[in-house]
Computed example of a mutant assay.
Amino acid sequence: MQFELAAELNGWPMDSRKKAAHLVLSLMDDALACLTALGPVEQRDYGAVVGALQRRFGRCDNKSIVVTELCNRHRRPGESLRALATDIETLTRRAYGHMPPAVLSEYARDQFVCAIEPRDLRERVQLRHPSTLQEALELALEREELRGGTTQGGVREASPTVRVAVESSPAREQPEWVGAMMERMTELVRAVTLQPQGGEARSPGPMRCWGCGRAGHRLRDCRDCPEKQGNGRGSV
């Protein structure tokens, strides 16, 4: 397209050798390699050079294939809305290039709205009834920005985490009896935890007499207790 515009501005005839020469001199890389399939005479013929380039780089404009691609076009994951609108417009022109510009514009607008993802964004744009493709694109961009943004289309970014700074109140002074009670509760829990699984409490130590203080017998069996001596009527 750029070369055709340059040829028109310079007034080169369509079949001139000068036009073919300028086209050949502007080719690079893979496009320049296409000349190897042409003979010396064809390399100086503009139509032959264009034909070689079309065979190598031309696209198939089968109307039925393009129409099917356009009807099945939806926003891909990670695709921006601008890229989607551009592709929809290109496919519309390829499929219905024979239609008036006003009809092409309306059809491209409708196809773009139908291709928007996610669904809630598409419905919001539909409710505004855009009149052109550009207006539909601007509405979609605005609504997407209000929804929290996307990573170049399709994939919504996570909402930023907002941390609220709350001034912590100073610790209240607790009464002394609260601390003592907590220590006592801790000791009780520890004592229950250390009990044997059989359910019997662990003996704290050997049995001792309350009278003489020696281990191995009880007060009622103590022979050295003063209260057990005499007539046996002492209080126990």
Rank of each mutant, 00 (worst) to 15 (best):
A140F: 02
V125H: 06
M207D: 06
H22K: 09
Q195C: 12
M14Y: 08
R82V: 15
R55M: 12
A115E: 03
D61C: 05
G149W: 09
C71E: 14
T90Q: 13
G154T: 07
M185S: 12
L27P: 03
C114V: 02
Y46S: 02
M182N: 07
E227Q: 13
A31S: 10
A171I: 09
F57P: 06
P40F: 04
E79Q: 15
C225G: 08
L219A: 15
R59W: 03
A20E: 02
E145S: 10
V125Q: 05
G234K: 07
T36R: 13
R76F: 09
P101G: 09
R119E: 13
D45K: 08
V125G: 07
T150P: 00
P160T: 09
P206A: 11
R220T: 02
L38E: 04
N231T: 14
D87N: 03
D221V: 03
D120S: 10
D87Y: 09
S203I: 00
T36F: 06
L81S: 02
L146P: 00
R190L: 08
L219H: 15
A136K: 07
E183A: 11
E187G: 06
L121N: 03
T36I: 03
E144L: 05
L53H: 08
V236D: 10
P170F: 01
C225A: 15
D30G: 00
T92G: 03
A48L: 00
S16Q: 03
E173L: 14
R44F: 01
P101C: 05
P196K: 01
A95H: 03
L70E: 02
K18W: 07
M99S: 06
P175I: 01
R56K: 15
L219Y: 13
H98W: 06
A85N: 04
P100H: 10
E176K: 12
L137T: 07
L141H: 05
E138C: 05
L84N: 06
V166W: 08
R163P: 01
L127F: 02
R202V: 12
H74S: 11
A33V: 09
L9I: 10
V41Y: 11
Q134H: 12
C222K: 02
R190K: 13
F112W: 01
R190V: 01
V178W: 12
A85D: 05
M1F: 05
K228V: 00
E4C: 02
F57L: 04
R220C: 07
A140C: 02
M207E: 09
L137M: 09
G11N: 12
E8T: 10
A108P: 05
R75T: 06
R163F: 08
R190Y: 04
P77L: 08
W210G: 07
E8S: 13
P40S: 11
V236I: 10
I88H: 07
D29W: 07
F112P: 02
